[in-house]
Design a protein around this nucleic acid. Sequence first.
DNA 1: TAAAGGTGATGACAATTGTCATATTGGGCC
DNA 2: GGCCCAATATGACAATTGTCATCACCTTTA
Lengths: 200, 200
Amino acid sequence: MIKILIAEDQSMVLGALSALLDLEDDFTVVATAENGEQAMSLAQQHDVDIVLTDIEMPKMTGIELAQALQRINYTAKVMILTTFTRSGYLRRAMDAGVKGYLLKDAPSDSLAQAVRQIHQGKVIVAPELITQAWGEVDPLTDKERKVLRLAYEGKTTEQISKAIYLSAGTVRNYLSEASSKLGAANRIEAARIAKQNGWL
Amino acid sequence: MIKILIAEDQSMVLGALSALLDLEDDFTVVATAENGEQAMSLAQQHDVDIVLTDIEMPKMTGIELAQALQRINYTAKVMILTTFTRSGYLRRAMDAGVKGYLLKDAPSDSLAQAVRQIHQGKVIVAPELITQAWGEVDPLTDKERKVLRLAYEGKTTEQISKAIYLSAGTVRNYLSEASSKLGAANRIEAARIAKQNGWL
DNA sequence: TAAAGGTGATGACAATTGTCATATTGGGCC
DNA sequence: GGCCCAATATGACAATTGTCATCACCTTTA
């Protein structure tokens, strides 16, 4: 019997996934969580084989969850199930020791199969992502990322400079540099590109 | 037996929802679709009681689907199941004759109950949305919306003006007007506000 | 210790954007 | 026809943004 813990912040989807996996005779969903923190504590309470988690969740993302589990040498295999096709996410997930990365776009009957394969020790990555995975690397520095994130929210140069304690001129330099690295014509486009690649 | 058609673009979620609803003895999922167009044609082939659909889908949104079904006097009751809490969406859904608007955040066991109630002729709206629903009305004109959408993508005034065959000056006027209506300091913030309210 | 490299700041200039007042145009409609 | 209105344009000006060269300070490292 493969013991599964599911973490997913949309209750409806969580319940539905749980129903889907419970249909399999060799699976049992031992616990469910609506955020990463809860999943972390439930994982420690239960004996679990597979942790199936989304990425974007309140309090703790799925990737942070994987990192935290890795840090305490937790033996369960972590599997990401998400909509995000950003190569940045995949890379970070692999670094966190994740054993599977599936997309919610994949047919629902492929999930059970993937769970079994990962349980057997294989590593599964959504085919759509394999090619692009080792493509471009995030070219942004931390400062550029931070500045770009604020610009993305519509903050002006002035507001950004106050928010992160840098001079307005420096902020503009970072934005300009980011745009140029990303081949964008302005801060908005730059932010969109970064966002699309999971760099933001 | 309540006959259900499900439209949802994420296969995994579609399959999971299908599994969830099939657990109920009085339900039968007669068809599933991955976009609105497909749902439209399947609805016409099958005899269906409830159409359960997401909003954002390729080819045809859930709201457009509801409108199309309303136009041909299709008798099935349409139910929206989505993540979007934008009041704009809810309003447009109600205008399209939708009988239920649930959030994916709601507990999964509330879905079956809602389906039954809607089947009995009730109208169900997620409680989180009821209060804000009749709040602010979309203040944007069609042109403003169109211009703002392009600006949101990082297009410059010049590019926008070419895309929609208006002078650059007029585009700037529209953007300025939109910002002022929305209380935003610049186009980016304006676009974000509009987006948040489902006006974009 | 000197060279190299990273981080942040400045100044200058052009381009773009935001704002506003004021045209122009082409319907509806009395 | 004449009037009103909405949609679109223009021009002018200030503010913001994008770009670039250069400088000042620290660390790191050879």
